[in-house]
Design a binder for these strands. Structure first.
Length: 332
DNA sequence: AATGATTTCAACCGCCCACGT
DNA sequence: TACGTGGGCGGTTGAAATCAT
């Protein structure tokens, strides 16, 4: 199906925005709010395409935008999220408050990508690029190699989360934060927490209510502390408090994981993907999040103590590697 | 100081998806 | 169900800024 252009191209201005145009757009948005971009230009007295107006607002005029140099913390976050999410800039941007996807994308392309390349890491796959890397210290090499494995695993899992969300949405679930037994155990293995929210929109808006789902994690662990139970899988039998629908979701989650790469709506994935990870990266940072500080559970209760240690070391090393790099100017 | 090369980043473009009719 | 529309996304472009010679 074809579609008409978003606007009549004739007579519309392109290129850099003038201060006068900015003023008009700002004034209009302040008075009427944003949205309705197609009709906005004529209403605002702008000879611009609606898309152009939207972009200008989102990337420049929006009041909650932070401009200027990226902090090392922000750069770390971008690198780590890129390892997990790839070029999903909008998803990455949701974890960098006040930064736009465009800005992040530009920063990646102009700085971070080169930095990783300089380190011998393929910025696309986050895998070591050549054999020279093998001469690095054993631990570092191991961790870099692990990155791709973990990224692939996480991608598959996040896709499964997305599917779960879609299925849940279809069943008209009410919005809530919850944890399935399976996801609790596996997320703890990775030092991460995820939420199976019923609505992707609400999953985005309400974030993951970190406090609440931390509690849920603890509760779920307590309920499934017997490794034999979790190894049997959760079909609802060992989680009597859950509704039938929730059991269905758990089943779907487990059943779909292995085929998860076949499907996926990026936007849904993005929404889901970010929640726990944002908490991990921005609030707890790696050390705190992975060390289990202030939490009740232990990795061993899930039979995965070594995984926690492994991943913690792994991420710490990634951070160390990034931190050890001099700033852009020194490096390049 | 002049000039060419390189880098940066704002903006555009085309595509995709969700939603309404 | 098919179609039209709006909004959003990621890739790319090109002018401006910066750097190197």
């Amino acid at each position: 199906m074809g579609r008409s252009p978003c606007c009549d191209k004739d007579g519309l201005k392109k290129g850099p925005w003038t201060p006068e145009e900015d003023e008009k757009l700002l004034a209009y948005v302040e008075q009427h709010g944003h949205g309705g971009w197609r009709s906005l230009p004529s209403k605002a007295g702008l000879h611009r395409c609606g898309k152009s107006c939207r972009l200008r607002w989102i990337n420049y005029l929006r009041p909650d935008i932070k401009r200027g140099k990226f902090s090392s913390q922000e750069e770390q976050t971008i690198i780590q999220l890129h390892a997990l999410l790839g070029n999903r800039w909008s998803a990455i941007a949701t974890h960098l408050p006040k930064r736009t996807d465009n800005e992040i994308k530009n920063h990646w392309n102009t700085h971070l990508k080169k930095r990783l390349a300089k380190m011998g890491i393929d910025p696309v796959t986050h895998k070591p690029k050549n054999e020279t890397l093998l001469t690095m210290s054993t631990g570092q090499t191991k961790n870099v190699v692990n990155l791709s494995h973990m990224a692939q695993w996480e991608s598959a899992r996040l896709e499964a989360e997305a599917r779960l969300v879609r299925e849940a949405k279809l069943r008209s679930y009410s919005v809530r934060c919850r944890q399935t037994t399976w996801s609790s155990a596996s997320n703890i293995e990775n030092g991460m927490e995820f939420v199976n929210a019923a609505s992707d929109d609400d999953a985005t808006r309400t974030a993951s209510c970190p406090t609440l789902h931390r509690q849920n994690v603890t509760e779920s662990i307590a309920a499934t502390s017997d490794p034999s139970d979790s190894s049997k899988g959760d079909s609802g039998d060992n989680d009597k408090d859950n509704s039938r629908d929730e059991d269905d979701v758990s089943e779907g989650y487990k059943g779909n994981l292995d085929i998860s790469l076949e499907f996926g709506s990026d936007r849904v994935v993005d929404n889901v993907a970010g929640e726990g990870f944002a908490d991990l990266l921005l609030n707890g940072s790696v050390d705190r999040s992975l060390s289990g500080e202030g939490r009740e559970y232990s990795g061993e209760s899930c039979g995965s103590h070594y995984l926690i240690e492994d991943n913690r070391d792994y991420w710490n090393n990634i951070l160390d590697m990034v931190n050890s790099l001099p700033s852009d100017s020194q490096m390049f």
